[in-house]
Write a protein that binds this DNA or RNA. Structure first.
Lengths: 218, 218
DNA sequence: CAAAGATACGGAGGCACCCTCCGCTTCACA
DNA sequence: TGTGAAGCGGAGGGTGCCTCCGTATCTTTG
């Protein structure tokens, strides 16, 4: 829902927001996206203000707390991720749909650097973004999970929260070389564990065994 | 290896370390354990010094960096965890041994609060503790894993590093209510996924289904 | 035991960042 | 174009990090 000039509120007339305020807010957001993606969620807010060409006071007026700013930056991203479920709803194999969504999530974290920290907030703070993310992502996973369970292909004793936690946890380790392939492998194991084994498919299912015998000891 | 007074180095005589230095080092360690366990690894070092009844300079002389202090506190803990493997080596079922060790690790994290952060370092820094932990824990897991693989009960395409990463990742979410049972459930799923299914055991194996149908949507 | 070094102590001080507050500027509206 | 509401910037007070060095304390030697 965007406010458009000329879209008169017939109720008490409201002053049009000042142009410079709008502009500055946008600049700060843009700068924050860059800075957070580069330096993680601990990055200096003064650096953000500087990069936005704005006083520190201005930054704090628009986003009173660090979380507010973080939230504004990553809310859209989380939404995008959760909407990915729509595309997968029509897939034939519900287990595979879940697997694919999880992989997309990993891809997402790999691309946007601040993402994993944003997701981690889900289980660590009670900010607004946390609530939002938890809700959206839980529902997203829940719908995939339900379908697979209903089809009798997946055990029913795992909640979406559980799965989300596992996903986020694994992605949180995202700064070692090779983390991505490792996580993908783990997710496959995971999904295999969730699956209800039928006699016909009782064989090990692994998507792409990284290397037949993984390197041991460094 | 502890230095004992009277245990003469026959080489160049070495001055006995000053008593106050030894005492202070110990005090700082003790204080740090408390403070880190309470406030996490970001806790104020000045608070540590204060609690130790020592100047900040003294703290820094003994432990030049935050990591040094953290390492000194948690090295012992990690060692203890890795030694737990010895007890499990004799177990009959190698898969179960692995499962048990993982559970112990979770228990460990639940008890010592700074632990999960210490473990997370493993994949995030290149501190000495990180190297030490990685080495010890990788070997610990590796030995359990190898046994299960050799017995033909577990797939071979997962490395100890992978598993460690998954474990740490899941534990990293350790500050929400109910995390522990959630993680335990996840670990069961995980081990199930690792297992090579035989026709005889092709049934879902779940240790203790938390609640038959886990709460969905909050 | 006393003197002499060697060693360690403490905390002041410089730096970076956090966040608040308020005098000054700029904008929307009339 | 005047005017007050809205917004701006950055000084300033607070906290924590870490370094540096004058002073205090300990070990050793005579």
């Amino acid at each position: 829902m965007i406010y458009i000039a000329g879209m008169d509120d017939h109720a008490d007339q409201i002053r049009k927001p000042r142009a410079d305020a709008v502009r500055n807010r946008e600049r700060v957001l843009e700068a924050a996206k860059t800075v957070f993606n580069a330096g993680g969620p601990e990055a200096s807010l003064e650096a953000v203000a500087k990069r936005a060409g704005v006083g520190i006071g201005t930054l704090y007026r628009h986003f009173p707390t660090r979380e507010d700013l973080f939230e504004a930056v990553y809310r859209r991203e989380v939404e995008q991720l959760s909407e990915l479920v729509e595309h997968l709803r029509s897939a034939k194999d519900p287990v595979d749909a879940l697997r694919r969504w999880l992989r997309s999530a990993v891809e997402f974290v790999a691309t946007k650097k601040g993402m994993s920290a944003a997701l981690a907030l889900t289980f660590q703070s009670s900010s607004e973004l946390a609530a939002f993310s938890t809700d959206r992502l839980t529902k997203a996973i829940g719908s995939l999970l339900d379908r697979a369970v209903a089809a009798g292909q997946m055990r029913a004793d795992i909640s979406p929260e559980d799965l989300l936690r596992a996903l986020i946890g694994m992605c949180y380790m995202h700064d070692q070389p090779g983390w991505q392939s490792s996580v993908l492998r783990m997710l496959d194991v995971f999904v295999d564990g969730l699956r209800i084994q039928t006699a016909a498919k009782a064989k090990v299912r692994s998507a792409k065994p990284a290397k037949p015998s993984a390197k041991r000891n460094r």
